[in-house]
Amino acid sequence: MARLTMVQAINQALSQEMARDERVVLLGEDVGRDGGVFRVSEGLLERFGAERVIDTPLSESGIVGAAIGMAAYGLRPVAEIQFMGFIYAALDQLYTHAARLRTRSRGRFTCPLVVRAPYGAGIKAPEMHEESSEALLCHLPGIKVVVPSGPYSAKGLLLAAIRDPDPVVFLEPTRLYRMLREEVPEGDYTIPLGVARIVQPGRDVTVVAWGSMLERVLKTETPHSVELIDPQTLTPFDWDTLLASVRKTGRLVIVHEAVKSGGLGAEIAATVAEEAILQLRAPVLRVTAPDVVLPLPKLIDSYLPTTGKIRTAIDDVMRY
């Protein structure tokens, strides 16, 4: 087994799946000759040719719209939006069409596409290049939203996403792209969508975090016994795993790098209030970005949840 970065793991997943399934094609800006601005698709044009690794015009709505047509036709397109901050022009295609094609055509047409987008803050990129607006996508029945939190989960989740019969948005935390290496099996494996992973079992407090925030929780030093949950798929969410954990620990801290209001943390907290309030010993706390526009890199450390803020939240719920 090789120790790979997330970029290498995703590249390997794409390469192996394209070799296995001729229906898989890539399209996006600079994905071919340049191998993607993060080199995620490096070498794939050479290996699979321009018919399957399509350098498109600069056209976010066109890319996702074309992927919808390709998917309905019977291909398995993997479209790249170069950065999540540019996905907004394609939200219309996702909301209006990808999410509802199966419903609107009563199953006559389906939309088995993947939209990959680098996501999240902390890489000193220009404005609009560090967004985490996953909650916009989670509000959309008919789309699955997946966020890997390391090289191993990136490969297994991406293979599952490409094989999934429904449209999947696959958000790749840019901060993790090259930050850590993990053992990644060379062979084929999938991690099922809609199933959370208990990263570490614990007794005192449940912490839920995804993407690059998971790494931050793992780095947080605390004397308390933390049960750490990585949902992996944000929609459909694995409520059973989360609720079982909260019922056991009686405490919940949610960590996400998106802003607080209307974030996915709100949905998680509301669900716990509906389903497990009698087992709670403490208020549910959210550690999130403040409700402001994502700042430029000089202020990013004040914006993102830090290990200090995470530790404080854990200490706070442990006071009850």
Partner: peptide, 10 residues
Amino acid sequence: IPHAVGAALA
């Protein structure tokens, strides 16, 4: 309109 483009590509 982009869906037709995708179908034609496919």
